[in-house]
Simulated assay, not measured.
Amino acid sequence: MNANNARFLLEQYMNGKDNVKPNVLESVFTKHADVVFDIKPNNIYFPDVLTGAKNISTEMFGEFHDKFKDVKSYYVDSDVESLLDKKAIKQQRWLVTMTERETSNTRIGAGYYSWYFMEEGTDIKVGRLEITILEMVSFAAEEDNWLTNLQSNLLDYPWVSSCDPFKTFERYSELETIDRFIK
């Protein structure tokens, strides 16, 4: 497993997840992969475990996009080469931004991914993904295009630096814990 292969799989994961491409998402995982959730806040729900690439792509993101739009997810300060340890990347920080369809509120979440890669035939894929959701904040943004402006300033999707333009977070006390997590 090399850093380029890992980076490609991580980019494909975000592409499939954020852009509602179940086939792309399914291709990232082994046939019998597991996605395990550790969810700290009580305002978001996923099952504790999802098993199988097909089930992961269907269950994990099908209903999700019915509830949320404008979804963009980012890896924060993630130098894949330095994070990759044999066939794993642990404690990779992430940030997700989206709009709630029902309320039009902005929702921002943060946490960690831990990736475990496996061989499947001649390919390397994700055999296990552990997702820790540390925070998930819902709030009414004061500006009409606040989320769009934030997302358009994060240019290297899905990779961002904690130095990227997160100053706008400081305007919202609701985002204090996420702002600290990013910095």
Rank of each mutant, 00 (worst) to 15 (best):
F181P: 06
D66V: 00
S27A: 06
F181Q: 03
K90G: 07
K67M: 10
V137L: 02
R107S: 13
P47Q: 05
H32K: 01
T97R: 00
M98A: 08
Y116M: 05
M14D: 03
P22G: 04
L83H: 08
M118L: 00
S57A: 15
D179Q: 14
K17C: 10
I182P: 01
V24R: 03
D48Q: 15
R93V: 03
G109C: 10
Y75H: 07
T132A: 12
S73W: 01
E81S: 13
N55S: 09
L84W: 00
K40F: 08
K86E: 08
S114G: 03
V137Q: 12
N19R: 11
N105K: 12
V137I: 15
F61G: 01
I89N: 04
N19P: 03
E81D: 12
F181K: 04
T148D: 15
L84S: 02
L9M: 04
T97W: 00
H65C: 00
G109M: 02
T99L: 08
Y157H: 14
S162G: 13
L50W: 09
P41N: 00
T58N: 13
D18V: 04
L147S: 04
K167T: 15
N2I: 05
S78Y: 00
E135H: 13
Q91T: 04
N153W: 06
L10C: 03
D144P: 04
F8G: 01
E11P: 03
N23R: 12
Q12W: 03
N55H: 11
K69F: 07
Y112H: 12
P22D: 06
A110W: 09
D156M: 08
E119S: 07
A33L: 11
L155C: 08
M118W: 00
Y157E: 14
N15G: 05
D79I: 01
W115C: 02
Y112S: 05
K167W: 15
Y157T: 05
I108V: 15
E102V: 12
Y157P: 04
F61N: 07
F61Q: 14
L150N: 00
G109F: 06
K54C: 01
R107T: 15
A3E: 15
V35Q: 02
M14H: 11
V160R: 09
G127R: 06
E143A: 11
E63A: 11
P165C: 13
I39R: 09
N145T: 08
T177S: 14
N55P: 02
Y113H: 12
F61C: 10
W159A: 08
D144S: 13
Y74L: 03
F166H: 11
D123R: 14
M14G: 00
F8W: 01
V36A: 11
F46M: 08
A53D: 13
T51Q: 12
